[in-house]
């Protein structure tokens, strides 16, 4: 603590009763994979949309021995990620890291790390809109009934609409999945590139929506299937060129505008993954120091 005179927070900010309430919701969510469990979301010292749901889930599961990593759009160093790490360091004296392998709890907005997660890790997603059917059915009573009765035809209406308007399933993020053969779930605004990683993941996946007051979960090693049509099967994004910094062709790339002359490059969105590869000696076309080894050059 920087200031010993300041009143001390309860460990991880939330009071113990609130944490218990959230843990009960989490247990229920784990027991019914993909089912949205209502919970009494608390006011947090940050606005909705900044990850209040994820933070409450993290606060409820984290312990003094845990090591926390927070990413936003795959990056460890965006304002949001830095703020949340600092928050937990301050209210729980929790160790933080940028290394995926070291972290025991990873809170994320928009990405799943490229590094394969293990049974010893928990992935916490920040969720803005938990209801996958909301796009077409505004009534909560009706969407709940549709989940209860497994009436999911409407989800395909959205995918049909994509193909009819764009010639392909144009949904690239928050791409609906069916969990454990039962509930259709919104995987939060992660790119569909990450959907296959959710399937049979060794780590526990928890989802928290603060404003919408919903928690849901995917237990380890659970089947997660992306919805599609027989003649338009699910596929993930592909890029024509490798990462300009580390040369990989296997990770999710962000487009970075370099100048106002149309110059641009594609780099890994997972900043830790990219840095690790570079440290291992991998190089891309625009690496500052291409001397060591150029993995691949863009065509």
């Amino acid at each position: 603590m920087s200031n010993s005179a300041a009143p001390s927070y309860n460990f991880a900010y939330l009071d113990e009763q609130t944490k218990r309430m959230i843990r009960r919701a989490l247990l229920k969510a784990v027991a019914i994979p993909g089912y949205q469990v209502p919970f009494a979301s608390r006011e947090m010292p940050m606005p909705y949309g900044w990850g209040t749901g994820g933070i409450q889930v993290t606060a409820a599961v984290i312990g003094p021995d845990d090591c926390l990593k927070v990413i936003d759009q795959g990056s460890d160093d965006t304002t949001n990620a830095v703020s949340i790490r600092k928050f937990f360091a301050k209210v729980g004296d929790i160790e933080t890291t940028e290394e995926t392998e070291r972290a025991t709890v990873i809170q994320t907005r928009h990405r799943i790390p490229e590094t394969e997660l293990t049974e010893d890790q928990i992935l916490v997603y920040q969720v803005p809109i938990p209801e996958p059917l909301r796009f077409l059915e505004p009534k909560e009573t009706e969407t709940r009934k549709m989940h209860a009765l497994e009436e999911y035809g409407l989800m395909h209406v959205k995918l049909y609409e994509d193909i009819s308007q764009h010639g392909e399933i144009a949904t690239t993020y928050a791409y609906p999945v069916k969990v454990d053969g039962r509930y259709v779930m919104d995987p939060s605004p992660t790119p569909k590139f990450d959907n296959p990683k959710m399937n049979n993941m060794a780590a526990l996946q928890l989802f928290g929506a603060g404003r919408e007051k919903r928690i849901y979960a995917i237990p380890p090693y659970t089947e997660v299937v992306s919805l599609d049509f027989d003649d338009h099967p699910f596929s993930i994004q592909k890029w024509d060129e490798p990462c300009a910094l580390c040369g990989t062709r296997d990770s999710f790339l962000d487009e970075v505008i370099l100048d106002d002359q149309g110059g641009r490059m594609f780099v890994c969105s997972d900043s830790h993954h990219c840095a690790k590869r570079q440290a291992e000696g991998h190089r891309g076309a625009l690496s500052a120091d291409p001397a060591l080894e150029t993995e691949e050059v863009a065509p």
Binding site: L136, E151, G153, L154, H156, V157, K158, Y160, E161, I163, S164, Q165, D228, F229, D230, D231, H232
Partner: peptide, 21 residues
């Protein structure tokens, strides 16, 4: 909010049609 085609197709998808064409 959705196209005429999707309006007509909804009931079919609701009973399990999974072939866009």
């Amino acid at each position: 909010g959705v196209s005429a085609g999707a309006n007509i197709g909804e009931r079919l998808m609701g009973v399990g049609w999974r072939h866009y064409g």
